[in-house]
Design a protein around this nucleic acid. Structure first.
Lengths: 299, 299
DNA sequence: TTACACTGTTTCTATATGGAAACAATTGAT
DNA sequence: ATCAATTGTTTCCATATAGAAACAGTGTAA
């Protein structure tokens, strides 16, 4: 069996992480011609195309994705091993690519990362905030904050907890509409929701042992929770949002909690990574920081 | 930071596994001059001696050992990744170095390995049976069967279970000596033991809820259980041995179980490896085969 | 549409590298 | 004690390789 120069694998991994041959060449400190030839040679040796590349973009083949998934972690471990031998283990360095939902990103991830940049001067960050779900593998991400139930995958997940949810509406709105004293009163109100919206939407409210499922009338849909909150603040209706998000808006925007004594099932929030966080020192630091801060702010 | 050619690490790992520069060069299919220069270069880049070498033997420095421990698994994963890409994952191949206590080795490991060689024609084995404890890292072993409680280490252990122990003696011996009807009767008998032997040795016997601790009189010590059994069979006295070991000797050598209704605390038996068995297909196969067979023969 | 900026690939050559053989050092057997 | 065998190291050269630059596509912006 022909053995593969492991150096080729490292270059391949870096190309995926950086998302381009050129960037990988800069990070590795070698000319891009070498990167190009290395990937080609790796493909030849493996006998499989790994990367479909037009001059302008590239995407992993299914084999390439599989290969990347299995090689990413060992490569990182080896690089870390090198660092710790050369006495650089005390200095946490490297780059971390993070993705998160927008609101979580702005309000939680950004401040944490801000602190980390001060604490670890050798650490650099790339953040990508979007409410659509990015492909951690294909886009070379190290870490993602995900809300909602996790789909099955071979990514390593670490559940942080459940986000407490609150029902809120503007003071002005509530004055103009019938009072809401029990869940059933919600039925005839205007509701602002995140997608997906089906023909019949329900909210399940719980108080003690009693659980009530109320059909609600969707008046406005947005993919941004923050935008829903602003619409609600303008009197657009009632919306459901993570408690931590609406808390500061409650006072300053004249929002009021509706049925505060009723609870709504929280949304799971998790950290997801292509590799085990324990296998990379710098990943562990960021992961732990996010975990600790988020779990202290779930409600 | 200067990056290290991962190929150098692979070569270093192979040198440790094979125990010599020459053998590593043969396995890798490269001249030994390259191996020599590679290790030297790796040491220079890391700024640390990894391997103390006289022309005739070599030993890991403490740094070298640490480096090997962290690099072994990722290197194997990468090599496996290559195999699975080139479609050789269905063919389990490679070499497995196993160590085990002698009796376990002869009676259990050898037969299992014998079967595996037939089942997996591409797999080769190196077996080293000894009752002294070998250094899995320094000697490049993949797998060890260990009996007795495990010392702490950064090896990955997998407990199989506890070996049932039986007290046995020769028919001829029992006829010449006072009958043994209860544990206390053992006190004045001749006993054959494994080291370590202290001035006072005890055997703890259990029946139901009653536990009895009996002092015993050591007449003969050997580091080989089998030799104890042969001595016992010759009428030398009573000995304590794993049930599976003396079972076949019971009939053919005229050995008889003593106090069969009393139980003696079993000795833990485990599989130990420098890497997680899950990270290498061939290791998993061997490990599972040993686990399954041994666990079915504990009593 | 056109020009520009960027991508990945190819070309070409100086350089570094890997491999055969000779070398030195150590062990074990005669 | 001497010889033979085997180890790791060094030498030296042909070869493969990495790197600079030119090249050729592709998307973007004016």
């Amino acid at each position: 069996m022909e053995t593969i120069d492991l150096e080729l694998i490292r270059i391949f991994v870096k190309v995926i992480q950086q998302g381009s041959f050129s960037k990988a060449s800069i990070i590795l400190g070698i000319p891009k011609s070498t990167v190009s030839k290395s990937v080609t040679k790796l493909e030849e040796t493996l006998g499989t195309k790994l990367l479909l590349r037009t001059t302008r973009s590239q995407s992993l083949t299914s084999s390439g994705r599989l290969f990347y998934e299995t090689c990413l972690e060992p490569i990182q471990v080896l690089e870390d091993a090198q660092r710790s031998m050369t006495g650089q283990d005390s200095i946490v360095s490297g780059n971390i690519k993070i993705t998160a939902p927008e609101d979580i990103g702005y309000q939680i991830v950004s401040p944490i990362v801000g602190e980390l940049t001060q604490k670890y001067p050798e650490l650099t960050f790339e953040m990508h905030f979007t409410n659509s779900i990015v492909d951690l593998i294909a886009d070379g991400f190290d870490l993602a904050v995900r809300i909602g139930p996790l789909r099955e995958s071979n990514l390593k997940a670490r559940k942080i907890g459940n986000l407490d949810m609150s029902l809120v509406a503007a003071d002005s709105y509530l004055k103009k509409h019938p009072p809401i004293l029990k869940p059933k009163d919600l039925e005839n109100h205007d509701v602002l929701m995140l997608p997906p919206v089906s023909s019949k939407n329900y909210w399940s409210l719980v108080k003690g042992k009693t659980q009530v499922k109320v059909p609600v009338k969707t008046r406005l849909v947005s993919n941004q929770i923050t935008s829903l909150l602003y619409s609600a603040a303008a009197g657009g209706g009632i919306t459901l949002a993570p408690a931590f998000l609406c808390r500061n808006l409650l006072e300053e925007k004249g929002l009021i909690r509706v049925l505060p004594e009723w609870k709504i099932k929280g949304i799971p929030i998790s950290l997801v990574s292509p590799i085990a966080t324990s296998s990379s020192a710098r990943l562990k630091i960021v992961s732990d920081a996010l975990f600790d801060t988020i779990s202290s702010r779930l409600n």
